[in-house]
């Protein structure tokens, strides 16, 4: 009996190490409309996982379950279980603010605060009550260096973040997220509003970041998915159709639907 238990817990912690995020029997409703129709999925730590699929298939809805950003949507309701490191994030007592510090998010349109560059990056630390100027300065510099923005902005940290270019703003938003040291970063089409050069910079950045973070990225750009991700999940009409190593998905998918979608032969 006791032996069995230890065995179980070994398996458990093994899963925990391997899989950062897990969804079990997840359904999402917006009022009566079922947007996610029962998805089971396990996402590996320190890998980049791409969500692809046609518009309206539920990629954003599914992604935003992991930091509970759907909570504010009118009529939103969820069934099933989402865990991070094995812990259910939808149980009653969870501290949602704490969760979001652990699971950062980067949005489609760069959305810096109308504050200075410095204040943007320091925001997450400040709302945790950190006031130590020295520490804030070091953390801001470190985060801006991580996104390769430091050299471009170091002489104007007090300038408005809104004066930056779109690509710079998006890297600033990533830096802002990194500053609070999350373990997961969710990205919802982070480059769809950017020019090719800025896109390339962010892709490079994602490649660097996966050493330390678990990254999930929604993208409509097939090349991007194949360039940056280790795993790819293809969604269609609220269902997870296929989920495998990116190489496999793009060279030899199991399902006809997946192949149709990635080759652009979609009906």
């Amino acid at each position: 009996m006791s032996k069995l238990k230890t065995k179980e817990s070994i398996i458990d912690s093994d899963i925990k190490r391997k899989y950062k995020l897990q969804a079990e029997g997840v359904k999402v409703f917006y009022d009566d409309f079922m947007a996610i129709k029962g998805i089971d999925m396990s996402i590996k730590a320190n890998k980049v996982t791409a969500f692809i699929g046609p518009s309206g298939c539920g990629k954003s809805t599914f992604l935003r379950l992991f930091n509970r950003m759907n909570d504010y949507v009118d009529g939103f309701r969820m069934e099933g279980k989402i865990t991070i490191d094995g812990g259910n994030i939808y149980k009653k007592k969870i501290n949602v603010e704490q969760l979001r510090k652990q699971v950062g998010m980067v949005f489609q349109k760069p959305n810096p605060f109308p504050k200075s560059i410095f204040e943007n990056v320091a925001y997450g630390l400040k709302i945790q009550g950190i006031k130590d100027k020295r520490f804030l300065q070091e953390k801001v510099e470190e985060s801006l260096k991580q996104v390769a923005l430091w050299d471009e902005v170091k002489d104007g940290l007090n300038k408005s973040a809104l004066a930056l270019s779109g690509g710079q703003q998006q890297r600033l938003c990533i830096a802002r997220t990194l500053a609070v040291e999350p373990s997961v970063i969710l990205m919802d089409e982070p480059t769809s509003a950017l020019d090719p050069l800025s896109t390339a910079k962010i892709e490079e950045l994602i490649y660097e970041l996966k050493k330390e973070y678990t990254i999930v990225i929604v993208t409509h750009n097939m090349q991007q998915a194949s360039r940056v991700s280790d795993y790819t999940a293809f969604f269609y009409m609220g269902e997870l159709i296929e989920y495998d190593q990116t190489k496999k998905i793009f060279t030899n998918p199991e399902k006809q639907q997946t192949e149709n979608y990635i080759t652009g032969r979609f009906g």
């Binding site: 950003m69 704490q98 998010m105």
Partner: peptide, 13 residues
């Protein structure tokens, strides 16, 4: 609305 999302996404109360 994107600013509200940014604020909540960063863990603001």
């Amino acid at each position: 609305h994107s600013l509200r999302e940014a604020a909540y996404g960063m863990g603001s109360t």
